[in-house]
């Protein structure tokens, strides 16, 4: 780039880089997916963030300097970020066999997409900021950067379960001897008296009532409910180990009534209803859970409106 005749103005690049990097840093902090959870994970994310912010911020500088080769190479480098998604997915999929309450394929895909998108977001914030700085000066560029970061944050934080679904504590009890109920939602059949005792003594139950059609469509999604169980277990722990399949936290629909409500039963390590409800409410709504709010005849029922 040093071959250009005029001296390079570095300020668009510096400000753009800073904005892009900050945008990525903010989304790293607010991640509620328990990933990345370790310094090594953070380092790799930070490295990607630096690269992304640099690509975004240096495009305009190289274009202004009439270095079209450099600009082309930068767009090439940007395509490398496609691999981020694959890497994330692989990591999480491998972890799936090692954790007691699986995230589920839908949740993993959601996390992977989000991480990929956030790198692109950092890139775009850097690009917008550096363009603004280039043509309007450092002060306005900085302001545009801050606005871009805020807009990115607002639009990137998707809906949460708490936005669409009412979460309330419910009593765990057994009917007909061995059927586990949460409130009036039947969960499963527990054949072992030992486990039934355990559930009655230490179990916690939560009822999920959709606030509208959208919430109901979300709840009918199996992957979504698996994600909810995972978040619940991550928040209060679960008394489960290999060889205790009936002590798995479960999230099931109210069947065969099909009223659209769901129940969640869990044997927690820490008996903390507040933490449990908060974790469920903060579970992100999965992309795969956003399908067809009108296809099921059950969804057309009056009482759900």
């Amino acid at each position: 780039m040093s071959s250009s005749s005029a001296p390079i103005d570095w300020s668009p690049m510096v400000i753009g880089f800073a904005a892009g990097f900050i945008s990525r840093l903010i989304s790293l902090r607010t991640g509620r997916t328990h990933y990345p959870g370790y310094p090594s994970g953070y380092i790799s994310q930070l490295a990607l963030a630096i690269i992304a912010a640099m690509i975004g911020s240096s495009v305009i500088v190289s274009l202004v300097g009439k270095e079209f080769t450099a600009a082309t190479f930068l767009t090439l480098a940007a395509t490398q970020f496609r691999d981020v998604r694959t890497t994330e997915r692989k990591t999480l999929e491998q972890e799936e066999d090692l954790i007691l309450v699986a995230r589920g394929a839908g949740y993993i895909e959601g996390i992977a997409i989000t991480y990929e998108a956030r790198n692109y977001l950092a890139m775009m914030v850097a690009l917008v900021t550096s363009v603004a700085t280039e043509y309007t000066g450092v002060v306005i560029g900085g302001v545009v950067g801050i606005i871009a970061i805020i807009i990115g944050e607002v639009y990137m934080s998707g809906p949460k379960i708490g936005d669409m679904i009412e979460v309330e504590p419910a009593k765990i009890h057994f009917e007909k001897g061995s059927l586990l109920y949460v409130g009036d939602v039947m969960m499963m059949e527990v054949g072992l008296p030992h486990s039934r005792e355990r559930y009655q003594k230490e179990g916690m139950g939560v009822l999920l009532t959709p606030k509208g059609r959208r919430g109901q469509a979300v709840l009918w999604n199996v992957a979504q409910r698996q994600a909810i169980s995972h978040e619940a277990a991550a928040a209060v722990g679960t008394q489960k180990d290999v060889g205790y399949p009936e002590q798995t936290p479960l999230c099931r629909m109210d069947m065969p009534k099909g009223s659209g409500r769901a129940g969640l039963s869990i044997l927690p390590v820490e008996h903390n209803m507040e933490a449990l409800i908060k974790a469920i409410k903060n579970t992100p709504v999965l992309e795969s859970g956003k399908w067809s709010a009108v296809t099921s005849p059950v969804l057309n029922r009056k009482e759900m409106e």
Binding site: G191, V242, P245
Partner: peptide, 28 residues
């Protein structure tokens, strides 16, 4: 119940009570 529990723990299966004196153990 004791036999059912032991078999469950050994083989990672799930017990279902049929309420006629019989428990069936299933493996997914």
């Amino acid at each position: 119940d004791r036999i059912a529990m032991w078999l469950c723990r050994i083989t990672n299966c799930i017990a279902h009570d049929l309420h006629n004196g019989t428990i069936v153990l299933t493996v997914n």
